[in-house]
Amino acid sequence: MLSRVALRSAAARQSASTALVARGSATEVSGVRDEKNFPRPVRGEPGKVRLGFIPEEWFQFFHSKTGVTGPYTFGVGLTTYLCSKEIFVMEHEYYTGLSLLIMVYVACKKLGPGIASWLDKEVDSIENEWNEGRRSTIASLEKSIEAEKKAQWSAEGQELLMQAKKENVLLQLEAAYRERAMQAYNEVKRRLDYQLEKSNLERRLSQRAMVDWIVRNVTKAITPEQEKQTLDRCIADLSAIAARQ
C-alpha cells in the first residue's frame, strides 16, 4: 500500500515520456486482461516421447504425410545412408557408446520402475508437506471462524440473558414496592385500628361510668314514699289488667 502511494507520487512527478520506463509495474499500464488468448500458464504433464527421447510430435508430423511407419522408415533410411556413405564414422568410441547404450538400457529396464515409484512417492510426500501448512492454516482459520460465529451466537444469548435479568430486576423492584406498600398499609391500618379501639373503649368506659352515675343518683334520689307509691300503683295496674281479662 505504501509502495502504491510512493508509485503514485512518483508518477505524478514523472513526465509522460519517462513514465513508460517503469513497464514492470502493473499499475502503470492499461488494458483489458486477455484471458482467452493469454491464459495463466499451468504446470502440465511431461511431453510424450518415443524410443526414450524423441518427441511424439515429430512422429505426428510424419503421420499425415507418410503413415505410422514413415518416421521409422525415415530414421532407418537416414541411418543406413549415413553409415553406408561413412558420413557417420564408426571409430572405436562408437563401440564404447554401444556398450554404454546397452548398459543404460538394461539399467533403465531393471532399476527404472523402482526408482520411478520411489521418486513419485517422494514427490507426493514433498507436495503434501508443502501443502500441509496451507491446509492446516485454512483448517485453523475455518475453526476460528466457527468459534467466532459461536461466540457471536452466545453473545446474542448473553443479550437475551441480560434482558431477562433486567426484567427480573424490574420484577424484584415491583415486588419490593408492593411489599412496602402493603407494609405501609398494614401499619396505617394498625394505627387506625388502635385509635378506633381506643376511642371505642373510652366511649364505652365513659358510657358505663355515666350509666353508673345516673343509676346511682337515681336510686339515691328515690325516697321510700315514692317507692311505696310506685309499688301501690303497680299493684293497682296489675289488678286493673287482671280485671280487664
Binding site: R43, G44, E45, P46, G47, G52, C108, G112, L119, V123
Partner: peptide, 13 residues
C-alpha cells in the same frame, strides 16, 4: 516447461 519442469518427469529430458 515441457520436459524438465513437470511434476513427475522420467528420464526423457
Amino acid at each position: 516447461h515441457k520436459y524438465m519442469q513437470p511434476k513427475k518427469v522420467g528420464m526423457a529430458p
